[in-house]
Write a protein that binds this DNA or RNA. Structure first.
Length: 596
DNA sequence: CTAGGAACTTAGTAGTAGTAAA
DNA sequence: TTTACTACTACTAAGTTCCTAG
């Protein structure tokens, strides 16, 4: 039953044994809350219009604490040098990177050095990073870390409380009367830019953001938040109803982009968009036959441009590739479908191709796959008379492809194919499952395997944890222990049987028989444990470099997951963390027989 | 018609807090 | 009680998409 109706139902009221006044107050409160939070029950098309909010109030953004100098010198050619605070801050940022992978990265080092020397000024005696000895600062940082680790429980509690209080005070916005969490209400602190892969700007000092850098978006009737840094003021105040951001500031590294302050995933603004994303993917389900027919006719077209369009979409559909926009040379050299170059594709026997390129986040996409001969031939054609660094699809770009998609279905774009195929893939994999009597662990194992298929499709990877081998080793030693335990138990059983044979009284025999039975039971249990540990190892090994969460968060329609869990009596907590359950609260009431 | 701006989604990793094992 | 893992969350980088100005 609808929760609201239930709350109003006489049996509920009776059950609570509230006084009437209390009931009224409580109901009103709840009704208000329900009306506010159950947006998915009665969302209307206009909620997706260009007006994103009517009233909006919040507390602006807050800033990381100012730098407090430690006055520890760096040693330069044998001389200790105490730097000015802002210079010392830069030096300390570098010190915090020493011993990590970043320290030895060529670009990172070069860029930091340039940034650092600039901070010091031309006439400073420090001329080279290589000659700087940061070890005293490193030592200091280590001590600080140690101190932090050794805080008393009381201190930790106080800190936690303080954090919570800040969150309560500043961490939410009120949008059209609904209180919503903010995703990132603290601006990014200064740091060294950790661009991924071979990013040309990695290592640059990311400067401190000041209130003057920040534009606040807030309702006309709302109180303008007080600037939290004394002596400073907000850069700008706007009242833009057509956007969802609460504030933005210029990206301190990339001159043409911004950092935005948004509501959390639990908010209506984000949740509704998320739901609509999946609805769009479901709409593609209706159009997919038509779309595939269309790109197949293009693949066979005599017009080169069409052959490129058709073949590109074929790859996007079949391999769930990203569309691949062009990138400037201020960014790492990564590609997607439309930006593939000749060097990224190899033609093998039997209509197989190998794609080998760096994708988003410099994750390597490496896949050998058999494709249809028509596409194989097309792709081969596209590489003719080209250099290795020429575009494979030289006549099209992401927008060409997206324009074409618009002609197939309203609102269709390339990324919808990824969502569509990922969700479909999970649903298909889960549909294979029909053994209802499995243990929960086995069900979970099955789910993880299905999830893994999606992650593989989308090429979602993660680095293998540092001490992964140790972890396996530990489980293995547990198995060894349990195996020797079984041996002992078996010996014990053997002896019991011997005793039973020699026993005279019936009573003793009976007692020994129960003992034997119990021992056997124990053996079974330990064997079961071993089996569980073994599958745990297997699963761990199997997914050690695969990121399962990414697809769960971004690509898999949560309704597929919820319905499967309900149908198979798997508690949702097994699949979704607390925050994911909140993010997907709009999908929590999905019926067991729901289909994507 | 194209380049780049603006806004929003998707992505992996670092660090932390809570929990299990020793 | 300490140590070691594990499971999350916080963080922020890196994509896509759509739009507008020239």
């Amino acid at each position: 039953m609808d929760l609201l109706r239930f709350l109003e139902h006489p049996s509920f009221l009776l059950f609570r044994r509230f006084s009437h006044a209390n009931i009224d107050r409580s109901l009103n409160r709840r009704r208000k809350l329900l009306k506010q939070s159950h947006w998915w029950k009665n969302y209307s098309p206009e909620s997706t219009s260009t007006v994103k909010w009517t009233t909006l109030s919040h507390h602006g953004v807050i800033f990381p604490p100012p730098y407090s100098p430690h006055k520890i010198p760096i040693i330069y050619e044998g001389n200790p040098i105490i730097l000015k605070p802002h210079q010392e801050e830069a030096a300390t940022l570098w010190a915090s990177v020493i011993g990590t992978q970043w320290e030895t990265k060529e670009t990172f080092r070069k860029n930091f050095e340039r940034s650092f020397l600039e901070t010091l000024g031309k006439r400073h005696k420090i001329k080279s990073l290589d000659k700087c000895d940061f070890s005293q600062i490193v030592e200091y940082l280590e001590k600080e870390k140690e101190n932090k680790k050794n805080r008393t429980a009381e201190e930790k509690r106080a800190e936690k409380e303080e954090k919570l209080a800040l969150y309560k005070k500043k961490g939410y916005a009120v949008v059209d009367g609904v209180k919503e969490k903010i995703l990132n209400f603290v601006v990014e602190p200064p740091g060294l830019f950790r661009g991924r892969g071979d990013h040309p700007k990695a290592g640059l000092i990311k400067r401190r953001i000041m209130p003057e850098d920040v534009t606040i978006n807030i309702g006309e009737d709302s109180k303008i938040p007080k600037c939290p840094v004394r002596g400073h003021k907000w850069g700008n105040i706007v009242h833009n109803h057509t956007v969802t951001w609460l504030a933005y500031y210029k990206d301190p590294i990339l001159p043409n982009s911004f950092k935005y302050v948004w509501l959390a995933a639990t908010s209506k603004m984000k949740g509704l968009n998320d739901m609509l994303k999946y609805e769009k993917a479901r709409k593609l389900k209706e159009f997919i036959d038509k779309a595939r027919e269309s790109y197949w006719s293009k693949i066979k077209s005599r017009i080169l441009l069409d052959r490129q369009l058709g073949s590109a979409l074929y790859l996007i559909d079949k391999l769930a590739l990203r569309v691949g926009n062009e990138k400037s040379n201020e960014e790492a050299d990564t590609v997607g479908c439309c930006s593939l170059r000749v060097e990224h594709i190899k033609f093998e026997e039997d209509n197989k191709i190998t794609l080998d390129f760096l994708a988003k986040d410099c994750m390597r996409y490496y896949n050998t796959i058999q494709i249809d001969p028509e596409v194989y031939k097309n792709l081969q054609d596209f590489t003719k008379n080209k250099d290795l660094d020429d575009d494979l699809f030289d006549l099209i770009r992401s927008n060409t492809l997206n324009d074409y998609l618009k002609s197939l279905m309203e609102g269709l774009s390339s990324k919808v194919f990824r969502t569509f195929n990922a969700s479909i893939r999970l649903q298909e994999q889960l549909a294979i499952f029909n053994e209802k009597n499995l243990q929960l662990e086995d069900k979970m194992q099955f789910f993880i395997k299905a999830n893994k298929e999606v992650a593989l499709l989308c090429n979602h990877q993660k680095t293998v944890p540092k001490n992964f081998d140790n972890q396996l080793e530990r489980i293995n030693s547990q198995i060894t222990k349990k195996k020797s335990k079984i041996e002992n138990l078996e010996n014990h059983a053997k002896e019991l049987r011997k005793k039973k044979r020699l026993a005279k009284s019936e009573n003793v025999k009976k007692r020994i028989t129960t003992n034997i039975k119990n021992t056997k039971k124990m053996i079974e249990k330990v064997k079961d444990d071993i089996e569980k540990l073994e599958t745990r190892i297997e699963m761990k090994e199997d997914t050690k470099n695969i990121a399962l969460e990414t697809s769960k968060i971004n690509y898999i329609d949560p309704r597929i997951v919820v319905s499967w869990c309900k149908k198979n009596k798997v508690p949702l907590d097994k699949v979704y963390s607390k925050s994911l359950k909140e993010k997907f609260k709009w999908a929590m009431n999905t019926e067991p027989d729901w289909v994507f």
